[in-house]
């Protein structure tokens, strides 16, 4: 039981971490990243990318140019752009929003529902529910949570992530975001495989 819980926790934490990384970096960002990189093998390569010589300002500028604008977004972080030929607020976006509503989640920030940070945090929410169910030994709910994670990844995040990753790697100026994107892609792929194997 303990091992099971631990591995679920780690998945949850990873998703949460990834999600946080796609917000505009704040003062303590570098420090937090360093901590995570130190304690989680998978993210260890990030440590090298956030050395002391890297200014926070530089990170912020890179983040903005990639994901915010104001002109052309170099790497739009929205699912519908990749799934619907460059469209924003498309039908896939509506579908993502429906997913959130079904889980009783209200969006409290001002952005499109299929922003990568949100989709990642959504998986995180599902995993936490899975965690609760595991503690309660509620096998029906556990299975349902796993099915939902799989389904959501298959129909949304995992579908557009490769193209997104490619964009970031092509346009990012800092190693951090390049590496982050790469790791995000690998992580999701691995996670999909794990879910498919029914673990």
């Amino acid at each position: 039981m303990e091992d099971v819980l631990a591995s679920i926790c780690q998945r949850a934490d990873s998703y949460k971490f990834l999600s946080e990384c796609y917000y505009l970096p704040e003062e303590d960002f570098k420090q937090k990243v360093a901590e995570v990189a130190n304690s989680n093998q998978f993210f260890s390569e990030l440590e090298a990318c956030i050395g002391a010589e890297l200014e926070l300002e530089t990170l912020k500028v890179d983040f903005t140019q990639l994901f915010v604008g104001p002109f052309k977004l170099l790497a739009p972080p929205y699912g519908s752009v990749y799934l619907e030929d460059g469209q924003l607020m498309g039908e896939s976006t509506i579908d993502v929003n429906d997913w959130y509503e079904k889980e009783g989640l209200d969006i409290v920030i001002s952005d499109a529902p299929d922003h990568i940070a949100m989709e990642l945090e959504f998986i995180y929410c599902l995993i936490v529910k899975q965690l609760e169910a595991t503690k309660d030994a509620d096998s029906e709910t556990i299975q349902s949570c796993i099915d939902k994670q799989k389904s959501f990844l298959q129909t949304h995040l995992a579908r557009w992530l490769p193209a997104f990753v490619e964009n970031v790697q092509k346009h990012a100026k800092t190693d951090f975001y390049k590496k982050l994107a790469q790791l995000t892609g690998v992580f999701i792929q691995k996670d999909m495989d794990t879910l498919s194997l029914g673990a």
């Binding site: 903005t64 604008g69 002109f71 739009p76 030929d85 460059g86």
Partner: peptide
């Protein structure tokens, strides 16, 4: 709006491409 840079820029500013007419899928 154009000058705004980070502050309050519309989410929808600067989509990479224009969507083609989706006659076959969707409503």
């Amino acid at each position: 709006l154009l000058k705004a840079g980070g502050a309050g820029v519309a989410v929808l500013a600067g989509a990479t491409t224009v969507s083609a007419k989706n006659k076959s899928k969707g409503k």
